[in-house]
């Protein structure tokens, strides 16, 4: 299976199949990331679209100085904040703070975890997603968020402390 860098290289040369493979690899993660940031499914779908179009258009500019995942999450973050501010289609963000996956599909503990994560400040919520779900090292998270590594460690420290308190059995 081609690794992410190979796929981006092929996408830069206009290979549609490679682009589809990259989409399959990242669409869920980008959607869930956007959902974690914006808590709105319609806006999260817009973020996926804008991110993947930007990946297609910008693949030839990817220099490989960071991981592909860092690059893609960085693009997604940019579009999430743009879309979140209502800069796309002139819309304001509908607030769906209470929106969560169908609880019937989730076991009780997962619902508790989702709620605890949703209750974190946005910057901490993002660090938790990027580390625990996307598996980005803290220096890559610092690049995505555009902050020093120490800030990422501090955000994670406080997020972990709060989650551990709220989810203690």
């Amino acid at each position: 299976m081609a690794d992410d860098r190979d796929l981006v290289g092929q996408v830069a040369r206009g290979n549609g199949r490679a682009f589809r493979a990259l989409y399959e690899r990242y669409a869920d993660r980008v959607f869930r990331y956007a959902l974690t940031l914006l808590r709105n499914r319609h806006l999260a779908e817009e973020v996926v679209q804008e991110t993947m179009v930007a990946v297609w258009n910008g693949a030839d500019k990817f220099e490989g100085r960071s991981q592909v995942s860092t690059w893609i999450f960085g693009i997604a973050r940019h579009h999430a904040y743009r879309i979140g501010r209502g800069e796309v289609k002139g819309e304001r963000v509908p607030d769906e703070e209470g929106e969560s996956p169908d609880p019937a599909l989730m076991v009780e503990q997962e619902v508790r975890v989702q709620r605890a994560v949703a209750g974190l400040p946005p910057d901490q919520r993002e660090v938790v997603f990027l580390a625990f779900y996307a598996g980005l090292p803290y220096e890559e998270i610092a690049r995505v968020q555009g902050v020093p590594e120490g800030t990422v460690k501090s955000r994670m420290f406080h997020a972990k402390k709060r989650l551990a308190e709220e989810l203690r059995p």
Partner: peptide, 25 residues
């Protein structure tokens, strides 16, 4: 617990790829 909870979040609707593809490939 966090990995399990994030993995339960939904993915994009099936039609998202068509919208992306129409603007790219």
């Amino acid at each position: 617990e966090l990995r399990a909870a994030f993995a339960r979040l939904p993915g994009p609707p099936a039609g998202t790829w068509l919208s992306v593809a129409a603007r790219t490939v």
